[in-house]
């Protein structure tokens, strides 16, 4: 029988949020159509390193397994991306896995992405329609605009743009491209536009929009191809106008 093909992994591990990271190497039998997640599952079944040492199963996040939830993002061979859509046949070996260290590491490849969900709450990335009585139908949205807005709504809060951004780091409190583009999405909605100024004021605060340094890594790295830098530039215009309104005008909206 021919020698069996194998896949080699070098995985960055970390036992707790505060402990030092270390690396472990794994070698698995190759199977057709393997992806990074199926390989991690294989390691979980039999957690033994390439050197034959028994170890703990690797911890990572996953959910949808079809690149729409964003949970399984990690650094794969130096690039932040989703491990569910990282096909072994398309990766150089050994496959190097690291957590996205822009976020607090919980354990191994698992990170805490809650800062992004907090940002969404901060910028009110929703459309307020609740009232004490039926407000009736809202204004209509043109179909062409809906199709355009759909592209922005593809954001799955995966965190790749924040990982790629040089201005999102421990020295800065920049909220990053992800919630900014959502401000543009909800400000574009005819009902959402009723709270446009409120969202703009929020991103004009500290750690907001102005921290963008235009490295444009976000738009190059976004797995969903969201025009993040176009959103940021559009918001730059909107906030410039908003700041003139605030200073020279008298309307609060």
């Amino acid at each position: 029988m021919a020698e069996q093909k194998t896949v080699r992994f070098i995985i960055s591990r970390q036992d707790s949020p505060d402990s030092a990271p270390y690396q472990e190497e794994f070698e698995l039998p190759y199977r057709p159509n393997m992806n990074v997640i199926s390989a991690l599952m294989e390691i979980r079944r039999n957690p033994v390193t390439a050197q034959g040492k028994k170890t703990t199963p690797i911890s990572w996040d996953m959910n949808c397994l079809e690149e729409v939830c964003g949970a399984c993002s990690m650094i794969i061979n130096g690039k932040p991306r989703q491990s569910c859509s990282a096909i072994i046949d398309q990766l150089e070996q050994p496959v190097r896995l690291e957590p996205m260290r822009t976020f607090p590491v919980i354990r191994d490849l698992q990170v805490d992405r809650s800062r992004m969900f907090d940002s969404l709450k901060k910028v009110k990335a929703w459309i307020p329609i609740d009232g004490t009585y039926d407000l009736g139908p809202g204004p209509r949205m043109p179909e062409t605009k809906r199709q355009w807005a759909y592209e922005l709504s593809k954001c799955m809060t995966c965190g790749v743009c924040l990982e790629a951004c040089p201005n999102v780091n421990s020295k800065s409190d920049f909220i990053g491209p992800q919630p900014l583009s959502q401000v543009r999405l909800f400000n574009a909605h005819p009902t959402g536009a009723m709270n446009k100024a409120e969202r703009l004021e929020t991103i004009m605060g500290d750690g907001g929009l102005a921290n963008c340094g235009n490295s444009q890594n976000c738009v190059q790295s976004c797995p969903k191809g969201i025009p993040l830098t176009t959103s940021i530039a559009a918001l730059n215009r909107d906030t410039a106008i908003q700041s003139f309104k605030n200073f020279f005008g008298s309307d609060q909206i």
């Binding site: 790629a164 040089p166 780091n169 800065s172 235009n214 444009q216 190059q220």
Partner: peptide
């Protein structure tokens, strides 16, 4: 800023 051109060698970066 935390420069990262070695990992993201895009023109704008």
């Amino acid at each position: 800023a935390k420069n990262n051109v070695s990992r993201y060698g895009f023109f704008r970066n």
